[in-house]
């Protein structure tokens, strides 16, 4: 896995979409892979919560025949947390403040998710 490429994707997303405050990428079982989060946020806990939430959402879409799960969003009075499935082996969390335009976030995230998916699944060549 190319760590630099993953870090670049995460930082690029934060710089591309106004209002993103934190991002994290984790395996589907909740093990943290990479985090770009503020001190006040525990990235390991965030990854575990995201895995649990996405697992439940995936089961719900399956049980109700809604097709393939794309994302879930939790809305709070001070911002939102968006959870995206990266294939069926990983996930990405994006936290944003009140100014975050979710439509724009979803548009920007889709191609980024494809690239992050290929970065994560590519074969290890450098022993990382």
């Amino acid at each position: 896995m190319n760590r630099e490429a993953l870090a670049l994707e995460m930082r690029g997303l934060r710089e591309q979409v106004t209002g993103i405050t934190d991002t994290a990428v984790a395996a589907a079982d909740g093990l943290l892979i990479a985090s770009d989060t503020a001190e006040s946020i525990d990235p390991e806990g965030l990854a575990a919560l995201a895995a649990a939430g996405l697992g439940l959402a995936r089961r719900t879409t399956e049980a109700t025949a809604r097709g393939v799960l794309r994302q879930t969003v939790a809305y709070g009075s001070h911002g939102c947390a968006a959870f995206y499935a990266v294939g069926d082996t990983a996930l990405m969390v994006v936290l944003g403040d009140e100014g975050l335009d979710l439509e724009r976030l979803h548009r920007a995230t889709r191609p980024a998710l494809d690239r992050i998916g290929s970065i994560l699944t590519e074969k290890t060549t450098e022993g990382v």
Partner: peptide, 18 residues
Amino acid sequence: TPAEIPVRLPPEVGAVRH
């Protein structure tokens, strides 16, 4: 320069794969 994003890998597993 902006702070480095710490990229962690799960122990034993080199990357997420099928």
